[in-house]
Each structure stands twice: as C-alpha cells, then as structure tokens.
C-alpha cells in the first residue's frame, strides 16, 4: 500500500511522455521532409517522364533504357563504379599503412599527422583547379619534374584512358588524411596487452600487422570503406572542376551526367540519373552492410 503511494508520483516524473515531447521532432522533420523526402519520392515519378519546360509526360522506362543504351550515359555508370572502388580501395590501403606508420615511434609525428590531414579541410574546388594546373601535360609541374628524371609524363587529364584515374588519385590525395585519422584512432584504442602477447609469441612486425592490428581494426576499416564509398559514388565537385567529364565523356560519372542533363533541360533524364545513382549506391551498400555484419559476428 505504502509502496504504491510512494511510487506513483515517481512514476509520473519518469513518464517520458511528459518531458520528452514528440513535437521536438517537428522542426527537423519539416525541413527534412519537404526538402529531402518529398524530392526523393518525386524523383521516383519524374524519372519515368519526359520532363522539360513544357511539362512532364509519362514515358515509362524510356529514360532508364537510354541510360543503358547510350554510351555517353552508360560510361558514366561504369566510371562511377571504377571511381568508387579505386578511391575507397586506395584510401583503405594507404590509410592503414599511414595509420600504422604514424602511430609508431618516429620523430615529427605530430607534424606528419597534420600534414597528411589538412587537405581534407581545403576547398575541393581549389584543389581541383590547382591540380588541373599541376597536371598540365606540357608545362604542368608534375610532368616537368618527371622530365628532369628522364620520364615522359602522360597527359594526365587529356588522355581519355587516364583522366578518370588522375581525378581519382587527386581524390585519394585529398581524402587519405581522413582514413588515416580513423585508423590512428582505431590503433590507439587497441590495448597494449595484445602487442605484448604477440611479442612474447615472437611475432614479427608483419605478423603483428596481419594477425593483431588488422583484425582488431575491422570497425575502423568498415568506417573507412563506408565513408569513402558513399563519398566516391556520389562524387561530383572534383570531377567537375578538373575535367567536366572530359575528354569527351570518358571521365563522366553519374553525378556529372545528372548535372549535364539538367543544364541541357532534360529534367526527366536527369531525375532518372538520380534514381540510377540511388540504386547503384544501394546495390553497393546493402550487400556491404550485410557482409560487414557477418564479419563482426565471426570475430
């Protein structure tokens, strides 16, 4: 009897409905709903229309068929996958190596960490314009430096086979600092006992990396892969400022195709591009999440 009398007001105080009102969701939900959810849902309709200044006309799967039929659109699809895989793969490998190196006993560690990281914060447009100048085939700094050691540098951004890779390399240059930072945080969090145990067992530094650091760093690795894939598949800024998809359309990605079709007034096709990009990102990310979840359990 007494217990109920005591607990009743306490229950009321703890009642979440009183102190955590649902309307706290409202302002965010309004902005997010109107400017993100509504356009995303609308794109699912507009992707099936021929949409321009004169209005939207339903044409079924025609836009999607175009995406797979027209080389200048399909190339963008292939390039997006290449770009995403290349940047995220390189960021994992280089980020891990740099992370291990920058947590070891070396001089000037703080300086090196800052230097590797600071391009992350710099304007992508600024970096794009700068590297477009540095990668100039005849009087760019990179090819001049190569000429000094007797190498005939390629046309980084003018060679159709190389332009996409060159942009991807600049992307890695700019983004590897973030991957490194994530790996450093992961390595620092590994308890010292693991390394001591490995030392007692006589592990070499290679074995240390392969059998101690790498498995324990799985959360960091999955973060790097997810972040760089999401960024890489949607990447636009760097490609647009460095090559605008050129030469021809050899370095176009879906994001730049979307912009080009929008500028040309083919809004339906542009929206279809958005849906294609969405499906592409989901097709890559969903299996990845599933795979990562499994890996987590195995560990």
């Amino acid at each position: 009897m007494t217990t109920t009398a005591l607990s009743a007001p306490r229950e009321r105080r703890r009642d979440p409905r009183r102190h955590y009102p649902m309307w706290f969701y409202l302002p965010a939900a309004a902005v997010y709903g109107v400017l993100f959810i509504v356009p995303t849902v609308a794109s699912l309709y507009f992707a099936f229309t021929r949409w321009n200044l004169s209005g939207a006309e339903f044409i079924g799967f025609e836009n999607f068929a175009l995406f797979f039929r027209e080389p200048y659109l399909f190339q963008g699809l292939v390039n997006t996958l290449i770009y995403g895989a290349l940047t995220s793969g390189l960021k994992v490998v280089l980020g891990l190596l740099l992370g291990v190196f920058l947590t070891s006993q070396i001089i000037a560690r703080g300086y090196l960490r800052s230097v590797v990281f600071f391009p992350v914060l710099v304007s992508t447009v600024g970096i794009g314009v700068t590297f477009a100048v540095l990668m100039d085939p005849s009087d760019g700094l990179i090819n001049r430096a190569l000429a000094v050691i007797g190498v005939d540098g390629p046309g980084w951004l003018t060679d159709p086979n190389l332009a996409l890779v060159s942009v991807a390399l600049v992307d890695v240059w700019k983004g590897v600092g973030l991957a490194t930072l994530i790996y450093i945080a992961g390595i620092v969090a590994i308890p010292q006992e693991y390394f001591e145990a490995a030392k007692v067992d006589g592990a070499s530094s290679c074995q240390n990396l392969r059998f101690v650091i790498l498995p324990l760093l799985w959360p960091a690795t999955s973060t790097v892969i997810v972040l760089s894939l999401i960024g890489g598949l949607r990447s636009f800024d760097l490609i647009w400022t460095m090559t605008q998809g050129g030469p021809g359309f050899t370095s176009d990605v879906v994001a730049s195709v979307i912009f080009k079709q929008y500028q040309a007034g083919f809004w339906g096709l542009s929206s279809a591009g958005n849906v294609v990009l969405f499906l592409l990102v989901s097709a890559v990310m969903v299996p990845l999440y599933w795979l990562m979840g499994r890996k987590e359990v195995e560990r």
Binding site: M22, Y25, Y32, V34, L35, F36, I37, V38, P39, T40, A42, S43, F46, W51, I230, L233, R234, A255, I258, F259, Y262, W267, S270, S271, N274, V275, L277, F278, V281, S282, M285
Partner: peptide, 27 residues
Amino acid sequence: RWTPLANALVLAGLIIPPAVVPTIWVL
C-alpha cells in the same frame, strides 16, 4: 514505435544521394 522509422530516415539521409531537379521543383 516511431523510433525505428526515425532511425531509418537518418540512415537514408546518410546514404541516398539527393534528387536534384525535383528539389529545385520543390524550392
């Protein structure tokens, strides 16, 4: 019961590339 929906929307915001032209249409 709304929390899972909110969670899903947060994840969607991280992954889904924004649809450009429909956004302009809304704006």
